[in-house]
Amino acid sequence: MNPRRPLNLIRFFPALFAILLGLCAGREAGADTLDATRARGFVVCGVNIGLAGFGLPDDRGVWRGFDIDACRAVAAAIFDDPDKVQYIPLSSKDRFTALQSGEVDLLSHNTTWTESREVGQGLLFTAINFYDGQGFLIRKSLGISSALKLGGASVCVQQGTTNELNLADFFRAHGLKMEPVVFATADEAIRAYDSGRCDAFSTDASGLYAERLKLAHPDENVVLKETISKEPFSPAVRQGDDRWFNLVKWTQFALVDAEELGVTSQNVEEMKKSPNPEIRRLLGQEGDYGAGLGLTPDWAARIIKAVGNYGEIFETNLGKDSSLKIPRGLNASWRDGGLLYAPPVR
């Protein structure tokens, strides 16, 4: 061998590649998501690739929606700036893998909380922030008023969702036949329905209202009243980081508590002077409820100031101030006959 010949790097490429592979496969044990987020300077949030009302970039490319505001609330709590978020659009199919692998800090992706997802996929759902149920969109011309009359029908549905399974369950439970046509994204599924390929389109009721807007003639289609499943939506985080889990969970609770106590993005500064001890504790005027979360005492006040309380977020994105006009229904406060109920900040 000529001693002056330079080291042939190409020979070492396989070894270098293997080292890189080994490093990538390594996940730091007990990684602290909050510290990592602080060091990075922004929250990485996994969101829907586009669902009106929940997460969709507007005409200027700014992400807006109910799930987006959940991410913004977390960013406001940590950085006092709701815009310190990077949104990673994920398909329903890829979302859990992205969270498991650490690609995102939290998943805010109109995701149904189920046992197997939590126990079997290494996730923790934080708190239900939207109560939904699966429904059907059909053409009015079918003249059907119940999903039970859909025996033998073709149904367009999106892959990687609980919807796919609920659909099979529902028809099986009633001894009916059904042809599922399963698409990678909701966009393709609704387009196929619109072209007449399917008799019905099925997804969560909130999504039906949003997807109906994409049809050529929305008015000729109707959402069936009945729902065939329970779809409680919740953000999700990885297992094994209790502080981060608590932070995301209590961010949601603070939004609900604020609505119950009448604290809004408009009046949060005045409310700090309120004599009501519950409000004073929530807004950090009495006691320190932020330290355990790794936050400052006024964490909840910052969240509400930046994104508003739960009611404000709901009405702007999904309710009467949006194009979807979804009624509060189950998502009203427990005081108004809904299911929203958050533990107190105390």
Binding site: L165, V182, A184, T185
Partner: peptide, 23 residues
């Protein structure tokens, strides 16, 4: 195939992956 709703190996395995979590 999954983009046009055809149940090929990739599409079916995607559903299985999602339901079992055994990525």
């Amino acid at each position: 195939a999954a983009f046009v709703g055809f149940a090929d190996l990739m599409q079916v395995s995607g559903t299985i992956l999602n339901q079992t979590g055994a990525a």
